[in-house]
Computed example of a mutant assay.
Amino acid sequence: MPGGVRTPEGWEVTWTGCAVMGILNVTPDSFSDGGRHAGLEAALAHARAMRDAGAFMIDVGGESTRPGADPVPADVEIDRVRPVLRALAGESVLLSVDTLKPEVARAALEAGAHLVNDVSGLRDPAMVAACAEAGAAACVMHMQGEPRTMQHAPHYGDVMAEVHGYLRSQAQRVQAAGVPSVLLDPGLGFGKTVEHNLALLRALPDLTDGQWPVLVGASRKGLIGRLADVPVASERDPGSLALHLHAARQGAAMVRVHAVAAHVQALRVQAALNGTNGAGPLQSPA
């Protein structure tokens, strides 16, 4: 594992400050960059550029989870992500697979992924089993509903209490089932209104103060478009930086981004001004 130290339990990677996870969509229909990296050579070139720009991890996704997205058959998703993961597996970067299907997670872990980033929060017992059997770390995200319908009518009594409570209880459950370590992700934009998203961003200290590292992914999301009146997703990087710098100041251990170089630069400057914050372990036998 790149940057890892072997322990009796497997490999462990630790970091200080807020690390950057680079987004690699190998899909034709992702909301911001669909189709740009669907070919293997384009995907690898982009992954290596993000690595060279300072990405701590590359998150490879073969199915769009934008609001209203239709599901993709597992075999299609596997055919999209597996060649990319295999080609990058020997290179000096950590790899994540962005999927909610256990069979895709298994194929990705066999191809070299170190972490499973499941937007459904490991609700499926088969996904928990896939991670536990491989000894792979996982990201537990909160999503109300499912991608096709999650933005129809999001509703919470107390969004912070419900989201944070779910994440903590789910982290305990999946670790008790054998998943070695987890990241928590509040799931901005996944079954949340603008007000819900802002409440969760303001409440980050409550989540980052716990035992699990926190991942925040606001990159180019509709929240920024509505707050700053920017209808084109690819033009939302300045707003993405603002939200992710806020997350880092509140203790987030990782941010998931499209614009890797800009985020690495901004986070380094912020760290010099304020000192590092956020820290996280990642364990895997890979």
Results as ranks from 00 to 15, higher is better:
residue 138 A to S: 11
residue 132 A to W: 06
residue 39 G to K: 04
residue 216 V to P: 09
residue 160 M to L: 14
residue 74 A to F: 04
residue 133 E to L: 10
residue 44 L to E: 07
residue 104 V to C: 01
residue 22 G to T: 05
residue 240 S to P: 02
residue 150 M to K: 05
residue 73 P to K: 03
residue 99 T to A: 03
residue 180 P to W: 09
residue 260 V to H: 09
residue 158 D to K: 00
residue 83 P to M: 06
residue 129 A to T: 15
residue 223 L to R: 03
residue 97 V to R: 05
residue 233 A to H: 10
residue 151 Q to G: 10
residue 16 T to C: 11
residue 269 V to G: 03
residue 139 C to W: 00
residue 254 M to F: 11
residue 69 A to K: 07
residue 108 A to D: 02
residue 87 A to E: 15
residue 236 R to E: 09
residue 131 C to T: 09
residue 111 A to T: 06
residue 117 N to G: 08
residue 3 G to K: 05
residue 239 G to S: 05
residue 262 A to P: 05
residue 92 S to I: 00
residue 102 P to C: 07
residue 211 Q to R: 15
residue 129 A to H: 14
residue 21 M to S: 13
residue 262 A to T: 05
residue 106 R to E: 14
residue 214 V to E: 09
residue 219 S to M: 05
residue 149 T to R: 13
residue 37 H to R: 13
residue 279 A to W: 07
residue 158 D to N: 14
residue 278 G to A: 09
residue 281 P to I: 06
residue 9 E to V: 12
residue 151 Q to C: 03
residue 32 S to C: 15
residue 282 L to G: 11
residue 9 E to I: 01
residue 121 G to N: 08
residue 213 P to N: 08
residue 244 H to E: 07
residue 228 A to Q: 11
residue 177 A to H: 06
residue 124 D to F: 10
residue 219 S to E: 02
residue 179 V to G: 11
residue 118 D to W: 03
residue 216 V to M: 06
residue 68 G to Y: 04
residue 27 T to Y: 03
residue 204 L to R: 08
residue 154 P to R: 07
residue 225 G to P: 08
residue 170 Q to D: 04
residue 234 S to F: 00
residue 286 A to R: 14
residue 51 R to P: 02
